[in-house]
């Protein structure tokens, strides 16, 4: 493996997201965006992870008002 693994990873539950955008403005590395194609159950374009660059800092988790919409993962120690 040549590429260095990201320190973090992000999961956003599309159906729990209300599209407020607070995670997007909170993310210090700007790796979250609104989906342009998905319209969720509640009728919002949900936020989605761009797919790379997450540092696992958790800032988005603490900015999101929805209890279960954001889950943050960190690279396990032994994998680094």
């Amino acid at each position: 493996m040549t590429d260095k693994l990201d320190r973090g990873r992000l999961e956003i539950s599309a159906d729990e997201c209300k599209g407020c955008g607070l995670c997007i403005v909170a993310c210090p590395v700007q790796v979250i965006e609104f989906s342009k194609t998905v319209i969720n159950k509640q009728g919002y374009h949900p936020a989605q992870y761009k797919g790379s660059g997450c540092t696992g800092c958790g800032t988005c988790f603490y900015a999101c008002p929805e209890p279960g919409a954001v889950t943050v993962y960190r690279l396990a120690k032994q994998a680094q």
Binding site: L5, G8, R9, G56, G58, F61, P67, G68, V70, T71, V72, Y73, R74, L75, A76, Q78, A79
Partner: peptide, 13 residues
């Protein structure tokens, strides 16, 4: 190789 760091707190239903 990724571990859950932050998720919905268990004190919620």
């Amino acid at each position: 190789m990724y571990e859950k760091h932050l998720e919905k707190p268990a004190s919620f239903y």
